[in-house]
C-alpha cells in the first residue's frame, strides 16, 4: 500500500517525532508506515485521517 504521509507531514512542517507524539506511537512506527514497511491498522489509519482532516483513501492508496 502507498501513502502520502511524508508529503502531508512536510506540508505541516511536522517532524516524524511530532507526528508520533500526536498519534501516541513511536517515531519508529511513523517511519515504518512512511517507508511502506508497515501498513497500519484501521484504527490508526482513521486516527491519521482525522489528524490530517482527510478521508483515509486520500492518504492511503492501493499499489
Amino acid at each position: 500500500m502507498n501513502n502520502r504521509l511524508r508529503v502531508l507531514r512536510a506540508e505541516r512542517n511536522w517532524s516524524q517525532a511530532d507526528l508520533a507524539q500526536r498519534l501516541a506511537v513511536s517515531r519508529q512506527s511513523v517511519n515504518a508506515i512512511e517507508t511502506g514497511k508497515y501498513d497500519p491498522s484501521l484504527p490508526l489509519a482513521f486516527k491519521l485521517a482525522r489528524l490530517f482532516d482527510l478521508p483515509v483513501e486520500q492518504i492511503f492508496t492501493d499499489k
Binding site: A24, V25, S26, Q28, S29, A32, I33, Y38, P40, S41, L44
Partner: peptide
C-alpha cells in the same frame, strides 16, 4: 503496549 507496531 499501545503502540501497535512495537507490539507486532
Amino acid at each position: 503496549l499501545r503502540d501497535e507496531f512495537q507490539r507486532i
